[in-house]
Amino acid sequence: MISTRGLVKRYGRIRAVDGIDLDVRAGDVYGFLGANGSGKTTTVRMLLGLVLPTAGEVALLGERMPRAARRVLPRVGALIEGPAHHGHLSGRANLALLDAAGPGGSRRTRTRRVQEVLEQVGLGGVDRRPVRAYSLGMRQRLGLAGALLRRPELLVLDEPTNGLDPQGISEVRELLLDLHRGGTTVFLSSHLLAEVEQLCTRVGVLDRGHLVLQEELATLTAPTGATVVHTPAADRVRAVLDGRVLAVEGSRVVVRGADPAEVNALLVGAGVPVTGLALQRPTLEEVVLAAAGSSPDRVEGAR
């Protein structure tokens, strides 16, 4: 669905994007992660032909961009750097204009399609107020509605939950999952690690223009082969499981072994109280920090 080879964008001496090879496959919900200034939005703009690369190749839906933009873009929905609207018009009027301006929009079904996407994003009951009176969250929903007008095969989103409250974020997450179940491939640029961890199937991590990680999320967060034990008697765990204790942090003990039942049986049999037990798995935040570095100005943690 999206493929880049050696993609580079320079601004003078600065390499905003430095030789990245993206691989987004049909059926992915792909999380494109990175701190502000890492090159995410520049990359997204190059994917859509809004910015020309300095070097490298871009293909969307199997066709070279921007050469094939007229054939490809009607099959792609996009929300980049926040929605742009005519502030004096209503949301419905803005969507009708957007549909009329794009290729392939049917005038006969326009009213119905506009109503459908407004309902999808939670604006079905919107009144005739001008967009300039909308909240930031409402404008973001309207931008998402615009991206959905043509029922795209590929949805490219840059920070789609910007300005939304927790309920709005949850609703957008469910909407994207529903679209994915219906066959839409989603490419989501974000810095919200917790959201990406709940939503995405694959992730790519950009750090200062370099793609430092690209992998299935399930692989990145797979069990490590250790068990986490929670107990008020951490010192006794070390005595019972001599040589298997990897780390002790207060009441949390990490023990070598991927069979929690076996670890529990040994500890309980020795009279050690166990209040919690689970396989150890790295969080997406831990994976990203390891790949991109732990400096807070480079990677934003989960919220």
Score class of each variant (00 low, 15 high):
254 V>H: 02
271 G>N: 01
10 R>N: 15
226 A>L: 01
212 V>K: 09
86 H>Y: 15
272 V>W: 05
262 E>A: 15
53 P>R: 10
156 V>M: 03
259 D>H: 13
205 V>S: 01
11 Y>E: 07
10 R>L: 13
76 V>W: 15
238 R>L: 09
81 E>Y: 15
250 G>H: 04
20 I>R: 05
208 R>A: 14
244 R>E: 14
171 E>R: 00
251 S>D: 15
149 L>Q: 02
206 L>Y: 05
86 H>V: 10
103 P>K: 10
211 L>V: 10
279 L>R: 08
124 G>H: 04
151 R>E: 15
264 N>Y: 00
220 L>H: 12
27 G>H: 06
88 H>P: 00
213 L>E: 10
21 D>T: 06
48 L>V: 07
186 V>P: 06
219 T>W: 15
119 E>N: 03
243 G>M: 12
215 E>Y: 07
228 V>G: 07
276 G>S: 02
296 P>V: 07
222 A>Y: 11
122 G>C: 08
99 D>C: 02
158 D>W: 13
154 L>D: 03
112 R>N: 02
77 G>Y: 14
213 L>C: 12
198 Q>G: 05
249 E>F: 14
210 H>W: 15
91 G>Y: 09
170 S>I: 07
128 R>W: 12
96 A>K: 14
47 L>N: 04
189 S>N: 08
262 E>P: 00
161 T>F: 12
188 L>A: 04
168 G>M: 02
275 T>N: 03
132 R>V: 04
35 A>D: 07
239 A>N: 12
2 I>W: 10
10 R>W: 13
222 A>E: 13
35 A>C: 06
264 N>E: 10
143 G>Q: 15
232 P>G: 03
106 S>K: 14
205 V>I: 06
182 G>Y: 13
281 R>T: 12
